[in-house]
Structure formats: C-alpha cells, structure tokens
C-alpha cells in the first residue's frame, strides 16, 4: 500500500500506483494520491498576484499557509473556457510547500498497475508535467508529476547578486 511519491523514478519499484483522477476541460488527469492534502470546494476568491506567470491563478489561505493556485490547463496546454470558474482546488504537498491545482471536477481515486501505464503519446513533451498515460474504465487518464507541474513556470527576472550574508573573512 506504500504508493511511491514520485511517479517517474519509483514507478518500476512498485506494482500499483494509487492516483487521484480529476477533470480539467475535456481531459482527465491524475496525481499520486499520497501527495494530495485535500480537495477544496467553494473556498472564495483568490488573491491575485500581479506580474505572476500565467499558470499562477492566485493565492489562497489554507490553515495558516499561503497556497499558490496553479492552472494545470496552462501548464499542460489544455484548452478550457476560464479557469476562474473552477472553484475546486486539489491541494498537494511538495516538500514543505503546498500548491493548489484548479480543477473542474474531482473524479475517483484509482489504483493503476504500473505495467498499465504507457509513455505519453507525444514525444515532444520532454520535461513536461505529463509522465504517463493509462486507461481507466471509461476514459484515458494523463498522469501528472506534481513536482514538474511547479517547475520553472516562473519567468526568470534579472537579479543582481545579493550582498547578504557575506561574512567578514577573518579570524
């Protein structure tokens, strides 16, 4: 029952992956169940973050934490009318940080045998968040790597080197 925390590298070591499946637009996705903190519904308006990357919809306050809400549609290139109408957030924990994924509908938690997971179809998605595809009874599900979901959607900004913390070299 110990589901691996990272889909890609630990996949082979375990025979079954427990995944939370959900719908974004017309497509279905899944994340490993063990990173999911909770599913929030109708939690009110998000605080906007001016100049943030497009994939960041805003910030939400959840139990003392500030949780950035991401739009998976932007990240994986799926079209959907407007993410703002998606009032359901799937909150996942990565290391010490929590992130929310704006989803349209929460589906089932499924157990997928590893050997049923196939490579993503389009080989062009190198480094993309989709790490695999599997067939659920009535649909095709794209397996997401949450770690990759949050990687570098931020435009780098020019930064001057920090002067902080330089100890005075002597003794």
């Amino acid at each position: 029952m110990n589901a691996p925390s990272r889909t890609s590298d630990v996949m082979s070591a375990s025979s079954v992956i427990r995944s939370c499946t959900f719908r974004v637009g017309a497509d279905c996705f899944a994340v490993p169940a063990d990173v999911v903190i909770e599913v929030l519904r109708g939690s009110g308006a998000l605080a906007r973050v001016p100049l943030a990357p497009e994939a960041i919809l805003g910030l939400l306050h959840l139990r003392g934490r500030i949780v950035p809400i991401l739009d998976p549609a932007v990240r994986v290139g799926v079209k959907r009318p407007t993410a703002d109408t998606a009032a359901t957030y799937l909150v996942v924990a990565l290391d010490d940080d929590w992130y929310g994924l704006a989803i349209d509908e929460m589906l089932d938690v499924v157990e997928v045998p590893v050997d049923r997971i196939e490579e993503p179809r389009s080989p062009s998605t190198e480094g993309a968040a989709v790490t695999g595809v599997f067939a659920a009874p009535d649909r095709l599900v794209h397996l997401l790597d949450p770690q990759r979901m949050i990687q570098s959607p931020v435009r780098p900004r020019p930064q001057t080197p920090e002067r902080l913390g330089v100890p005075h070299g002597r003794q």
Binding site: L59, I66, P68, D97, I150, V154, R157
Partner: peptide, 25 residues
Amino acid sequence: KPIGSLLSGLGLYSGATVLGDGGVV
C-alpha cells in the same frame, strides 16, 4: 507567511499575510 519558491522567484514579493478580514495580501 512564505509564498513558496514559485513566487518568491519573481523578486517582487517577500511574502504574504492574511488580514483581519481574511484577505490574502
């Protein structure tokens, strides 16, 4: 409160806070 590496990388915000009215600022 920290806003996570995702947004602190922007270099514009040093964190966030929750005001008395519940709003995140």
